[in-house]
């Protein structure tokens, strides 16, 4: 299964990781790959850590990989990148949004948000840091940080052979389409 690639998308409930996974899955299918996508629902909706895996290639059997199995990490939050580091292959490409979302214990002061998360990842992997919130704001869609990060990720990961604008048009509801097309 050497030609099967695994993209791990991680973030915090409510950041729109599942929407991006949907866009990604749809685009890869259009490009002719066999694709499987797996997400974890349930309690994770309530502000917990969320993860999705998208796997593509000639023939994909398993919808998931375990530790040391992912080729690409798209992290929508800095601390989440660190949490999932051990799921990556040593030569994995990593894209991190320069966004920190405190957990409740951090917000109440019971715990500290860890310092140096991005630097720690940079020591281990080829990391691209994206100020997705800023890009989204500059391009006039402050709620589109998820798609802004995705736009950078497809460049870094060599997934720009897909016409993502067309994919977005097919996947997104009309009322949020234009605002998101501007981000690609």
């Amino acid at each position: 299964m050497s030609n099967v690639k695994t993209i791990l998308l991680v973030g915090v409930g409510g950041q729109g990781t599942i929407l991006v996974s949907k866009i990604l899955t749809h685009g890869l299918l259009k490009a002719g790959f066999d694709v499987k996508m797996s997400e974890v629902h349930g309690m994770a909706q309530r502000g917990g850590s969320v993860s999705t895996q998208v796997r593509y290639g000639d023939k994909v059997w398993s919808p998931i990989v375990g530790e040391g199995g992912a080729d690409i990490l798209i992290s929508f939050e800095k601390m989440e990148a660190v949490r999932w580091a051990n799921f990556l292959k040593p030569d994995a490409k990593v894209i991190i949004a320069d966004t920190a979302i405190p957990s409740l214990p951090i917000a109440t002061g019971a715990e500290q948000y860890p310092e140096g998360t991005v630097e720690a990842m940079q020591k281990l992997f080829d990391v691209t840091l994206v100020d997705a919130d800023k890009i989204a704001k500059e391009k006039g869609n402050p709620r589109g940080a998820n798609v802004a990060l995705f736009a950078e990720a497809v460049k870094v990961c060599g997934l720009d052979f897909v016409d993502w604008k067309e994919v977005l048009t097919e996947v997104l509801p009309a009322k949020i389409l234009d605002a998101n097309l501007k981000l690609l």
Binding site: M43, Q45, S49, M79, V82, E111, G116, T117, A120, M121
Partner: peptide, 14 residues
């Protein structure tokens, strides 16, 4: 696998 030298703290659902 590689493990980051910085540890993530828990993110319990709330």
């Amino acid at each position: 696998t590689k493990t980051a030298e910085v540890q993530a703290t828990g993110r319990p659902p709330v």
